[in-house]
């Protein structure tokens, strides 16, 4: 395996004759017989090693890095735009949110999240998560991954965890970029919450940390949807586009006032709930409801992905 191949994310294993793995070949050797002799410690080690190699591939891939760079760019553009607006406009013309951002460096993070969770972050996450299984199938490398006595469940778990780590990385990139931009352009100090109360900067940073955890969990839930779609196709763009359609349809449905009763069942409804951390006292009920919704989505789409992938005929 050459370095160039690794960097472009294509696996080639020379010397192996391509053999289509079908249900018949897998059922001839039930997985229990193979995995039983392997001590559990070695299996977990193999799991982490596989995850490590997946993460290496994901974070070395230029496309993924470019996506993260775009995410990092948005808070910078937003910050500079607001900085110019705050510098030129009179106090009366500024809306409360711009004033909040201009008044405190930490608020840019929350503003950036409120823009990015709607579309751009879901796009970035679904590109990586939608590519996970379908991409391997499309380039014909999936059967080699399954050739190792690994088991499909484990491969799926590794692929999903890889997407989750990337989702959190994307969230952290947005937070760090916004935080740095904010600290450079705007004054620091105590933070004014939406409720009008003021908290210390350390408390504000803690609230950003909670936001990162919450938004990351939301993106992980979206990654579950993308991975599930990814198991149904061999064309990664299909899974990515499918996830995007899912997000856009959800956003459209949310925008229709008459459909308000179904809004709680739509995943993107819960993404913006992170503003609960900006209230006093923190609206833990809103955060808890959001996390429960994310958990439900992960459970449902994770199990769909598993049911599909473990029974799929791998022909490429």
């Amino acid at each position: 395996m050459s370095t160039a191949d690794t960097q472009t994310g294509i696996r080639r294993t020379p010397g192996l004759v391509p053999v289509a793995e079908t249900m018949r070949t897998t059922e001839r050797h039930p997985p229990e017989e193979i995995s039983a002799p392997v001590p559990p410690a070695r299996r977990t080690w193999a799991f982490w090693r596989l995850l490590g190699s997946e993460l290496g591939l994901t974070f070395r891939r230029p496309r993924n890095l470019a996506l993260l760079a775009v995410l990092a760019l948005v808070p910078i553009v937003l910050g500079i735009g607001l900085w110019i607006a705050a510098g030129s406009g009179g106090d009366d013309e500024m809306s409360g949110l711009i004033q909040d951002v201009a008044g405190n460096s930490l608020m840019l993070t929350f503003l950036s999240f409120s823009f990015l969770v709607l579309l751009l972050m879901p796009v970035v996450v679904s590109v990586v998560a939608g590519d996970s299984i379908a991409g391997e199938a499309g380039t014909g490398t999936l059967r080699y991954l399954l050739a190792a006595p690994a088991g499909r469940t484990r491969l799926l778990a590794v692929k999903y965890l890889n997407a989750v780590v990337f989702a959190y990385a994307a969230t952290a990139v947005v937070a760090l970029s916004a935080l740095l931009t904010g600290l450079i352009l705007f004054p620091g100090g105590s933070v004014t919450l939406l409720s009008g109360t003021t908290v210390s900067m350390a408390d504000g940073l803690l609230r950003i940390l909670v936001t990162v955890g919450y938004v990351g969990a939301g993106m992980a839930a979206l990654a579950a949807v993308a991975v599930a779609l990814s198991t149904f196709t061999e064309v990664s763009i299909g899974a990515i586009a499918g996830t995007m359609v899912f997000i856009i349809v959800c956003q459209v449905l949310r925008a229709i006032p008459d459909l308000a009763p179904i809004a709680p069942y739509l995943l993107p409804t819960w993404f913006t709930n992170f503003d609960a951390v900006l209230r006093s006292p923190i609206d833990t009920a809103a955060l808890r409801d959001g996390l429960l919704a994310f958990g439900a989505y992960i459970m449902l789409f994770g199990s769909i992905a598993w049911a599909r992938f473990s029974g799929k005929d791998i022909t490429s």
Binding site: M23, M299, L300, S303
Partner: peptide
Amino acid sequence: RRGTFVRWGVPIAAAAVI
């Protein structure tokens, strides 16, 4: 196959639990 039904029972069970 019978295994298919068992497998797809898992997401159905998940949906039922939710």
